[in-house]
Design a protein around this nucleic acid. Structure first.
Lengths: 210, 210
DNA sequence: CAGTCTACCAAGCGCTTGCTTGGTTAGCAA
DNA sequence: TTGCTAACCAAGCAAGCGCTTGGTAGACTG
């Protein structure tokens, strides 16, 4: 670099409105944590990504772990909002389940993918206390799932234990971040259909999209 | 500790037969990597776990990454052997699929669980080259799966794409390490049955165990 | 019984890490 | 104009990291 981070920052408007920089730090953190993992991402790398020096990061966050925590916290909020939307929309339980699956896959592969991937797979990088607090936030998200699956079981659409089913589904969906390419030949709707086909008993699978 | 690592090592038989210490290092590494993750496990911790000093580790391995690589390599060998056993044994394709699922769950929760968990979830801690080499080893393992699933599809037991199905199954099974307790109320056979029930189309699920 | 080799210790090197400290600048309010 | 504050830089500290080096004790070999 021929231009220092300091000079670069002067080219932009200094003292940006509100906590815009904080947002940018969280976005960059989500991306870097996803790409390289939490412990392989240094505070210096993160700072460089938004054009400041490493020490300045601690003006916005009190520790590196707090950044990870905040990435997860804000992500879970969005996840819950998105899932609730899918849960409330559909009428028939079959459609509802499809919408839920599709929503989770969207979260995993849409604009929120960095934060969601980090939330799914990097909670073990948190200390015990923060791990517990994140886990309890995720429970609200899981409750939406369990309600839907319980409903599906009562209506005979599923003959497996809702709890176990959800856990298996969590793994199946979460793992897609390691192989599914959103810009590949398999569309997100088609993927959601396949997942649905595995979950639901009869041939009554919602063939909505694609 | 009131007794130094050195004194401790003198209490044991020095210069143990063959590469027994190497084995012990790999075992300890698998356990520590699984429990705390690769980058959160220091060479010093690993050394202490087997009663030597950190520098001595590099008499057995040329780098920390080589230890991870070796853990994965030896694990994949065992995984392939175990899966091939399951694949060759069963006659009917239904039983075969059940055996494969049960074998993978056994690998994930039996004595090999540390290495298997590390192999499943920590390949991103390897450098690019080693990542590729491990990935190519895993392909042999996946081939066994794909063969079985393709066979199942031909016989109408499955109506989803074998490749996609396997990926989803990988996630579902792998994720069990985060929630399934082998000493809990749900037996391994029961779990395998539930997974089978999700995979296979009709009620023709093998209800062998539990 | 000398020579060799394996497995280790003891010490520490060079580097990176998360984080702190003290000072500086731009923007805003009175 | 002055005073305050948020946002940052510049410098660096202490701790921990992976790994190296030089030496040595004990077992094995001819």
């Amino acid at each position: 670099m021929s231009v220092s981070a300091y000079e670069l920052s002067l080219q932009m408007t200094r003292t940006p409105r509100l906590d815009d920089r904080r947002e940018r730090l969280l976005d960059a953190a989500a991306r870097l944590f996803r790409e390289h993992g939490y412990e392989r991402t240094s505070v210096r790398q993160l700072a460089e990504a938004v054009g400041i020096l490493s020490g300045s990061v601690f003006h916005h966050f009190s520790s590196k772990e707090e950044i990870l925590l905040e990435v997860m916290r804000s992500t879970i909020e969005r996840m819950i909002a998105r899932l609730r939307e899918a849960s409330d929309s559909g009428a028939a339980i079959e459609e509802k389940l499809f919408n839920l699956i599709r929503a989770e896959l969207e979260l995993l592969h849409g604009p929120t993918r960095d934060g969601v991937a980090v939330t799914f797979f990097q909670w073990h990088s948190l200390g015990q206390d923060n791990q517990r607090s994140i886990l309890s936030m995720r429970e609200d998200y899981e409750k939406i799932w369990l309600n839907a699956l319980e409903q599906a079981r009562k209506q005979g659409l599923i003959d497996t234990d809702p709890f176990v089913t959800r856990r298996l589904l969590t793994g199946a969906n979460g793992w897609t971040i390691y192989w599914y390419k959103a810009d590949g030949p398999l569309g997100l709707d088609a993927l959601a259909s396949q997942v649905c086909q595995l979950m639901l008993k009869p041939a009554s699978v919602a063939e909505s999209g694609v």
